[in-house]
């Protein structure tokens, strides 16, 4: 099938088997290799990207379903020379060890902070109607779809908290 995907603000024309996942389209057809394949089953979170600002597992969604959507990958968030605030915070807090889950963690955190800002409750929210607080418990729960086998979780949560607090102050 011939489709056009908008990725990181740029349109890409592609001829794809309709069964191709967004993940395989990115990695195998567009050389956007920052998005990682961990389990290919939607269970590890390494392939997380943003679709219209919402985080999804790119291995569990077909590319043909996303014509007209705005897809953002780790490459679209920043570059080594110009890191996004979350990317910089992950470096500053050592929010990784082997680094394989890191692009997914950062895409997920980017989407997650927007969810918190929009007031979405989580499994650990005491009050479903109140604005969620920036506790470790809230952030950890909301990031629990992204596995890190090196278990750099403490530093991941610290990095996210730093950015979330800076944003809150800026508001």
């Amino acid at each position: 099938m011939h489709i056009t995907l908008s990725i990181n603000g740029k349109d890409h024309e592609l001829d794809l088997d309709p069964r191709t996942s967004v993940l395989d389209a990115l990695r195998d057809h567009l050389d956007l290799i920052g998005t990682k394949k961990g389990c290919d089953h939607g269970q590890c979170g390494a392939c997380t990207v943003l679709v219209n600002g919402r985080r999804i597992n790119s291995c569990l969604t077909l590319a043909v379903m996303h014509e007209g959507d705005a897809i953002t990958t780790i490459e679209g968030l920043g570059t080594p020379e110009a890191l996004s605030p979350l990317q910089a915070a992950f470096v500053a807090h050592d929010g990784f060890q082997c680094g394989y889950c890191t692009p997914g963690q950062i895409c997920s955190a980017t989407g997650m902070l927007e969810e918190m800002r929009a007031g979405w409750p989580s499994h650990v929210s005491e009050d479903l109607l109140a604005a969620p607080d920036l506790s470790d418990a809230e952030i950890s729960e909301r990031m629990s779809g992204n596995l890190c086998r090196c278990s750099a979780y403490t530093n991941i949560v610290a990095a996210i908290t730093e950015v979330a607090e800076a944003r809150d102050e800026a508001v």
């Binding site: 920052g34 490459e75 929010g95």
Partner: peptide
């Protein structure tokens, strides 16, 4: 910090795949 940190966070660290 880890020497590849800036590459890990920007998706530029190259693994075999």
């Amino acid at each position: 910090r880890h020497d590849s940190g800036h590459k890990h966070v920007s998706g530029r660290a190259e693994y075999i795949d």
